[in-house]
């Protein structure tokens, strides 16, 4: 089973991002997906900057993909996605059907991120016809649905690889509204990109101090971090091609190495602590926040 480093969901300064991927070159990860998936106003890194890093990582032997914006509202955003889908250097990971459509129109094979609503094999069949070669299980699905879908893929003889998120804040929702700006009493149009001040988001607790959510700009994430380290052997047995680690803090080295060791067969490992506690409920068909 391969190890995928998913895009950074947060807004980090350009130098932090460059340092992060400099380190990632030497990490034991097979695939790296990168790019801005949450908010088009985040411009520390331009599309060209992402493509540059992608080429460097590719030269260092990594399989790479540029991941697209998930909620595409403005014409300018759509235009940026269209031009990304026209370039031929780097594979594109579609997080919206607009990207899937343009990649199909350009005759390019593509992969799918966790924001595409793929709940059944009929959907996979259609997307595979359009050029989808790899897909990511929606984060609210668990072992039962994954197992059904893998059986369906086999039965339908689809040439498509399956990826499952195993670590990171779960991307739960996207909105027109910026909750980070709202939390600091700024309108979205005058947000001054304040999310750069919260490198692991803003935690949201109930009035009884139960951690519920994590605010990341227009995205609402889970308050707890997904951790499926213990399920890696099961995922491998099921026929999953790659597991996906989403950066949950700027320093991901220890977490990545722990996952890599587990993938190479080491047992009895525990995930090193990150910026919040862990959860795994979705995997067991329970509420996502549960820890079982």
């Amino acid at each position: 089973m391969k190890l995928t480093l998913a895009p950074i969901p947060f807004y980090w300064p350009k130098q932090t991002v460059l340092d992060f991927y400099q380190q990632a070159q030497s990490w034991p990860v097979d695939r790296i997906c990168l790019g801005e998936t949450v908010c088009s106003k985040r411009r520390e890194m331009r599309t060209e900057d992402w493509l540059d890093i992608a080429r460097q990582l590719q030269a260092a032997g990594k399989e790479v993909a540029i991941s697209t914006l998930a909620l595409v509202e403005a014409e300018s955003e759509l235009k940026a996605i269209r031009s990304l889908c026209e370039q031929s250097d780097i594979t594109v990971e579609a997080n919206d059907l607009s990207a899937a459509e343009y990649l199909y129109q350009n005759g390019k094979a593509f992969t799918g991120g966790p924001f595409l609503n793929i709940y059944n094999v009929e959907t996979l069949k259609l997307l595979a016809q359009d050029g989808l070669s790899r897909w990511t299980l929606p984060v609210e699905l668990g072992q039962k649905e994954l197992s059904d879908l893998l059986a369906d893929i086999k039965r339908e003889q689809l040439n498509i690889k399956t990826e499952v998120m195993v670590h990171g804040y779960l991307p739960l929702a996207l909105s027109a509204r910026c909750f980070t700006a709202r939390a600091v009493d700024r309108p979205k149009d005058a947000c001054k990109k304040v999310c750069i001040e919260y490198p692991t988001g803003i935690p949201v607790d109930s009035r009884e101090d139960q951690r519920l959510f994590n605010l990341n700009g227009i995205q609402t994430q889970s308050g707890l971090i997904l951790d499926l380290l213990a399920e890696l052997p099961t995922l491998a047995d099921m026929g999953v091609d790659a597991v996906r680690v989403v950066p949950s803090q700027p320093d991901m080295s220890e977490i990545i190495h722990t996952y890599a060791r587990a993938l190479s067969g080491e047992t009895g490992l525990a995930s090193p602590a990150s910026s919040a506690s862990y959860c795994n409920g979705y995997w067991y068909g329970k509420e996502g926040m549960a820890s079982l």
Partner: peptide, 16 residues
């Protein structure tokens, strides 16, 4: 609905 419909899992995160 404050979230983009069809792309909101807040409810399943709390209830399944």
């Amino acid at each position: 609905c404050v979230m983009a419909e069809g792309r909101c899992y807040l409810s399943s995160y709390l209830t399944g």
